[in-house]
Design a protein around this nucleic acid. Structure first.
Lengths: 334, 334
DNA sequence: TTGTAGGCGTTATCAA
DNA sequence: TTGATAACGCCTACAA
C-alpha cells in the first residue's frame, strides 16, 4: 500500500500543502469549508503524517527512551506501564532498551536513542541502590526511576523503603501484634536496610523491640524465608507476626508456619513486600504486602519529563510512598 | 549541549557535506586521509547522525513496533528480549506498546507506529490462541508471535504445545514412570488442549493410559493444583508422576505431595510448564519444566522481519519446539 | 576524489 | 484566508 503524503492530500482537496497542513493541525486561519475538504481528502487517502518529517522541522519527536537493566525482573514493567499511560498513546511512543546490566551496552543504547532524537530518557535501575549517572552533557532531560543516580544534580524518583517498613509494622501493630519479627534479604541492599530501619523505628515508637532480637538478614529467596522462620520459631515460639522483606521470603515463611500448624493470621500474621501478584495471590492464605506503587513512579517520571522537555528539570531525589495491600494473611488479633 | 550536524563536521574537516557523508558511511570513493579528517572532526564534535533525516531520505527508520497485550504477563518479555538481541543494539530500536487487551487502543498504537514509519511490526498475543489479524492493507510486514493470527495469509510463529506435552511425558517415561497423571488449566485454552493431546499421544505410544482416568482440566492456579492433586491421590494413590499444565499448577501439586509426605521425585515425579524462574527455582524441590523457548521465537520473528522488509513475508503458522529443563523434581525410578 | 544540487515530507514565515 | 518558499539534516545522482 503506497502511503499518501500531504502533497497528495492537498492536491485532492485542491489546496496548497501549506493550507492542508494548517487545516489538519487545527490552525484557526482556515475557512471551515476548506478544512472539511482537506479532512475529507485525508481520510479518503488514509493519510497519516510522517512523524519523521514533522520531527525534523519541529525538533520534537514525541518519543522517549526507557533504559532498563531489569526487563525480566518485575520492577521495570510497572514503571513502563505507568509512563506509557501518562504519555498518552497518540502523543508519545516509548523506545524500550534493556542494557542487561552491561554498561557498554548501555552506552550503545544511549547513543542510539539520542541518534533517534528522543525527547527524553527514563533510566530504570536493576536494584534500588544508586547507580552511575549518565552524565550532564546529554542534550535531553534524563530521569532516574527506582534506582537513584549517584549524582545529586540528577533528578531521581525512588520508593520510600523506610516508609514501607514503617507501614508494614504499623499495620501489624494495629492488628494488635506485639512480637513482631523481620526476616529480610541481602544486607548489602540499601532497600533491605531502609525497610528494616523503618520497621525498627515504628517498633521503637511503640516501645517494642523486634522479636527474634534482631533483624534477620539473609537472601531474597523462599528457602531463606523457610530457614529463618524455622530458626526463629525455635528460639522464639511466641512470635505473633512476621514482616518479610519480599514476597518470596514471605512465601517461605508461610510454608513453614503451615507445616508447623501455626494458623495464619490467627496465630501469626505475615506481611510481604513487592505485591508480586503471582506470589501473593496464590499464597496460603493470600498475602498482605507492601506495593511500591511503581506505576505511579512511572507516571510521575513521564509527567516530569514532559514538562521538562521545554524548560529544565529539577534535581535531587524524590521519594514516593508505597501502599499497603491487605489480604488474608493479616487480621486483628481476637 | 548543542548538537553538531553533518554541516558542522564538514566545515571543521574542510570538506563538503557530501564528502563528509560518504566518509562517515564508509563509501569507497574517499581518500583515506580525507576520511580520517572527517572522522576526527565528527568525534571531536561528538557528531551523531540524525536518524530522522536519514529515515526521511532512505525510507528506512531502523525501528520496529512490538505490540503486546500481555506486558505484565510473562510471555511478552522473553519474546521482546529475543527480538532485541536479534536486531542488534545499534541497528534497530524497538517501540513497545501495550494494548492491554483493548482493540481500540490497539488500533491507536498501530496508527501511531505507522506514523512513526516503523519498518515492521511484531504482534504478541496475550494467550496462545488465535487472535484477530491486523489486516493486509498495512504498508509494513507484520509477524504474529505466540498467539497466531486468525488469518492464514499472515505469518505466525507459535510454540508447539503438543510437542511440549509429548516432551514432558516422554521425559517421565524415560524416568521409568508408568502411572502418569496430567493436571492442567482452563479447558477453553487451546494450549491446554494441545498439551494434553501431546501427552496422551505419547502415553498411547507406550501402551499406557493416563493415570486418574482422564486429563484434569481446571484453572491456571496453585489452588487448583492442590485441589486436583488431593482428589487424584484419594482415588489413585499409586500415581508415580504428575505432569502439570503450568508452573503455578505444579507448585500446588508439590505442596500437597509435600504435605502428604510423598517424596519428590523418589515416589512421585513432577513436571511443570513455562519455566517461570521465580516459581521453578524456589520450588521444593526445584521444578523440572517445559521452557517454551520464547526468546527463540522473538529472535526468529526479528530475523524474518528483517529479511522481509525489502521483499515479502511468507505466510502460515510456524511451530517452534519447546525444550525440557530438568531440575530436581524428576529423576529415574530406582 | 570531491563538490553541487535536488529531494525526502513537514512546518512556519511571509506576502498576496 | 490562502499560497509560495525556505528551512529541518541527510543522502545520492551527477558533474567537475
Amino acid at each position: 500500500m503506497e502511503r499518501a503524503t500531504l502533497r497528495d492530500v492537498a492536491r485532492l482537496a485542491g489546496v496548497s500543502v501549506a493550507t492542508a497542513s494548517k487545516a489538519l493541525n487545527g490552525q484557526p486561519q482556515v475557512r471551515a469549508s476548506t478544512r472539511a475538504r482537506v479532512l475529507q481528502a485525508a481520510s479518503q487517502l488514509a493519510f497519516s503524517p510522517n512523524t519523521l518529517a514533522q520531527g525534523l522541522v519541529t525538533q520534537r519527536t514525541g518519543t522517549v527512551g526507557l533504559l532498563t537493566s531489569d526487563l525480566e525482573g518485575r520492577f521495570s514493567i510497572p514503571i513502563l506501564m505507568g509512563a506509557e499511560d501518562a504519555f498518552g498513546t497518540d502523543q508519545t511512543s516509548v523506545f524500550l532498551c534493556d542494557a542487561r546490566g552491561d554498561s557498554i551496552r548501555e552506552k550503545h543504547h544511549v547513543r542510539a536513542l539520542l541518534s533517534r532524537r528522543v525527547d527524553g530518557l527514563i533510566v530504570v535501575g536493576a536494584r534500588p541502590d544508586s547507580r552511575p549517572s549518565l552524565g550532564h552533557d546529554l542534550p535531553v532531560p534524563v530521569i532516574y526511576a527506582y534506582a537513584p543516580s549517584d549524582d545529586p544534580r540528577d533528578l531521581s524518583l525512588v520508593v520510600d523503603n523506610e516508609g514501607g517498613g514503617r507501614l508494614a509494622v504499623d499495620h501489624l501493630i494495629r492488628c494488635g501484634r506485639r512480637k513482631i519479627a523481620h526476616i529480610t534479604g541481602d544486607a548489602t541492599y540499601g532497600a533491605a536496610q531502609d525497610r528494616a530501619r523503618g520497621a525498627l523505628a515504628r517498633l521503637t515508637e511503640e516501645g517494642l523491640a523486634v522479636a527474634g532480637g534482631e533483624v534477620w538478614f539473609g537472601m531474597w529467596s523462599e528457602a531463606w524465608g523457610r530457614g529463618a522462620t524455622r530458626m526463629l520459631l525455635e528460639r522464639h515460639p511466641d512470635v505473633d507476626a512476621i514482616f518479610a522483606g519480599s514476597d518470596e521470603i514471605a512465601r517461605g515463611v508461610l510454608d513453614v508456619l503451615h507445616e508447623e500448624r501455626l494458623d495464619v493470621p490467627g496465630r501469626v500474621a505475615v506481611v510481604g513486600y513487592d505485591n508480586w501478584t503471582i506470589l501473593t495471590a496464590n499464597a496460603r492464605p493470600p498475602l498482605t504486602t507492601i506495593d511500591m506503587n511503581l506505576e505511579q513512579l512511572g507516571r510521575v517520571a513521564a509527567q516530569r519529563l514532559f514538562t521538562a522537555i521545554g524548560g529544565t528539570l529539577g534535581s535531587g531525589t524524590e521519594k514516593f510512598a508505597p501502599k499497603l495491600v491487605t489480604r488474608e494473611s493479616t487480621a486483628p488479633l481476637r
